[in-house]
Design a binder for these strands. Structure first.
Lengths: 106, 106
DNA sequence: TTGACATGATACCTTTCGGTTTCATAAATA
DNA sequence: TATTTATGAAACCGAAAGGTATCATGTCAA
């Protein structure tokens, strides 16, 4: 009964993990390379990468003795799509807010 | 140095809170009304609503002795907009994936 | 004013989170 | 082969999360 996005949302809850995703948007990286960008141990970064992987937000590919982490656009889009549930809502609501602000200006 | 979306992402990490947001998309509700929809105490629901409020995802308005919880489209859009950072990325990547799938089909 | 009702707030408990340290393993290289 | 390099994994720790129960407060209504 768990939503498919659950692990994705969980993965996005931590600022370090969101930061990692932005890093990986520029280029694929090994664990060590990702870890260079943070003030914590490689083991801690590895944990974050595991959670990102579980959330389907990255994929990991073994290349010899190193493992390359790559952003996974499909998983990211899965979480993104969750918001479309509210499309109708905020279209109308933001319009309402906008027109009320206009009214206040007059 | 904390991102403005941090509290929003934190609020979205819990499935009960995401469920509350979908409820509030259909209509504004008091705490008691929200609590009717879940198998937990009103106090627990109140905590979730507080976290949603801190994340700017809902607003709360006092009306006599009851407090009405309302979806806040602005805060929701703030989190939504975080994803636009990856727009360019997944446009190109999803296209790549799609064409690779097409190739496999041939 | 008294009582019922809707909520706020606090103390407490268990589990999960985010980090560390330490040790094991697999692959590249001298 | 011996050693370095890149990673995996487990034990451990303090803090935060998600619940509960309990009591306090403010408001409506008879």
């Amino acid at each position: 009964m768990t939503e498919p996005e659950q692990l994705g949302f969980r993965a996005l809850a931590d600022p370090t993990r969101r930061s990692i995703l932005r890093l990986l948007a520029s280029q694929d990286m090994t664990i060590a390379e990702v870890a260079e960008n943070f003030d914590m141990t490689r083991a801690a970064v590895k944990k974050h990468l595991t959670i990102l992987d579980q959330g389907n937000l990255i994929s990991v590919e073994t290349d010899g003795r190193s493992r390359v982490n790559r952003l996974n656009p499909i998983g990211l889009k899965g979480v993104f799509d969750w918001f479309t549930y509210f499309d109708a809502f905020w279209d109308s609501r933001l319009d309402t807010l906008k027109s009320e602000i206009e009214k206040d200006r007059q």
